[in-house]
Amino acid sequence: MTTLSPPQGTGRAGRSGPARVPRKQRDRRSWTGWGFIGPFMAVFALVFLAPIGYSIYLSLFRDQLVGGSTFVGFENYQRAFEDPQFWSALGRVSLFLAVQVPIMLFLALLVALALDSGRLYGANFFRISIFLPYAVPAVVATIMWSFMYGSRFGLIGNINDAFGVSIPDPLSPDLILAAIGNIVTWEFIGYNMLIFYSALRVIPHSLYEAAEIDGAGQLRVITAIKLPAIRGALVIATIFSIIGSFQLFNEPSILQKLAPNAITTYFTPNLYTYSLSFTGQQHNYAATVAIIMGLFTMVIAYAVQLRGMRKEA
């Protein structure tokens, strides 16, 4: 990808990758190539294509407790489009995406720029501490945060007791999405910071020297050199975050035990799929919802990528 490639004008941009290897003797129908690619294709088909195919197959049926399995064509898809629970789940993750992702990426960018500025004391320690939450499994992180969120025995409860204040319960229906956003932000700032930081590191120093000669200030360096240079990384991080938001599952699923009324069984599309499939035994409809969500995510991610990349060219 272009993520880590240096910006234009350094003379290395032309070597963007091995994609354009000339295909010689294309017409001879030699099967030697397949011999090389065969093992890969077999595993690829087994672990990527087959599950998708099977899900599509499943989504065309309806399995009932009474009556068994029947072919229903696209009825499940029609049902999904008329399903208020599905739309509310999708609306919720979209809101999450619109609010949480910009905050998280902005903070990550800020940290990456601070690290890259070279003016930070103990930069290595700072970097590893911020990255550390990403190394904590999401499940563990959520359990940890849920202890802190407890308004009775948790950190919130302790603060309330110690200072005689009453912080609103983060697990209440109004705040639960923000509480989840906080956990996700905490988890992924470090990861995104690392993407940005590594992209910043490959900017050639000569550019900064040139900027200095031209009398550019730090802010100017950031807006004119650094940000344009890491546009690719920004786009990639955004796409990852979009996918992550649409797939939100771990955090609400664990917090559900503490706040089952605030986190419904259809809180996010993935949670809805899970409930449908595993408590409702509606595997067919669950597969349908999963496929629709997959397509939806692909479309959004692709749109972002197109937009992000076009400006770069």
Partner: peptide
């Protein structure tokens, strides 16, 4: 499993 989605709303 869907009690909280429905009746549970009375609690909040």
């Amino acid at each position: 499993s869907i009690f909280n989605d429905t009746a549970g709303q009375a609690y909040i």
